[in-house]
């Protein structure tokens, strides 16, 4: 296959994934809209007003990451169950086309979720977002999306059965929810846990988005660079065909 066909194949595959996804909309909409708003209201009761921006950003991050990890991994798990995964592997396409098309088909829902969450935060909790902040938030959101999709892909291709993939995705979801500092600053963690937390793209993403709103510029630059690094690394890993063709 020529890499010239990559954009065309990506567009076709994404359209296919999106067509299928929109026919199973109910659960996805519940997950993307109700879940983040629920978290936002729940945490707002517990959190001091000074941390509202952190909670807002944490909610968007968590939602994006959970969708990427769960939906991508489970979509691959579903394809493995129906053996469509084998059919995709036998097509003259790059594994990146397959993985990215599933992730892109989820992106509109993550984006919609982020917009709704942001809207609720502005209207109900009076969080102030300037046009510049909004633009930077969108950029940061895309980086977070890109830096977490590899996790879902890896779980999907490494899992031997749909059941195993499901369990692994749930486990990672729990780890993300409770152990990654997105609803609170990483600085409050003890040093050993902070080191572990910085191994996750999500921690950098939260730091990046908080810096978009509150600064400083140096944190913004470092976090952004690390996120770009994660995106490049994931794409390199997926493109290399890890476990695409079994050994």
């Amino acid at each position: 296959m020529s890499w010239r066909r990559f954009p065309d194949q990506l567009a076709v595959s994404t359209h296919m994934q999106l067509t299928g996804t929109t026919r199973e909309l109910g659960l996805l909409l519940g997950f993307t809209i109700l879940f983040p708003i629920g978290i936002l209201f729940f945490l707002n009761v517990l959190i001091v007003p000074a941390l509202r921006v952190q909670v807002l950003i944490g909610t968007i991050m968590m939602e994006t990451a959970l969708l990427n990890v769960n939906v991508l991994a489970q979509a691959i798990g579903g394809d493995k169950q129906t053996k469509l995964f084998d059919l995709f592997v036998s097509l003259p396409i790059s594994p990146a086309v397959y993985a990215l098309s599933i992730a892109l088909s989820i992106l509109p829902f993550s984006l919609a979720s982020a917009v709704v969450t942001l809207g609720v935060a502005i209207v109900a909790f009076h969080v102030v977002i300037t046009p510049f902040t909004l633009a930077a938030l969108v950029g940061g959101f895309v980086l977070v999306w890109g830096s977490t999709l590899g996790v879902g892909f890896l779980i999907g291709v490494l899992g031997r059965s749909p059941r195993q993939i499901n369990s692994m995705a749930q486990l990672v979801g729990i780890l993300l929810t409770f152990f990654v500092p997105v609803f609170y600053p990483a600085s409050i963690l003890p040093l050993p846990l902070r080191v572990v937390a910085y191994g996750w793209p999500l921690t950098w993403g939260a730091q990046f988005l908080v810096a978009v709103v509150n600064g400083p510029a140096s944190t913004l630059a470092i976090s952004g660079a690390v996120l770009v690094g994660f995106v490049v690394a994931w794409f390199a890993l997926i493109g290399s065909g890890i476990r695409w063709r079994e050994r």
Binding site: M16, D86, L91
Partner: peptide, 29 residues
């Protein structure tokens, strides 16, 4: 792979796509 096609054992087409959509998408890929 450009010269082969496969139907894996117990493979099921996507239940959320129509017959025509299957042909359209996979032929393009």
């Amino acid at each position: 792979k450009e010269f082969l096609s496969v139907i894996p054992q117990e493979c099921e087409p996507r239940s959320d796509l129509t017959t025509e959509e299957h042909l359209r998408y996979f032929a393009r890929l």
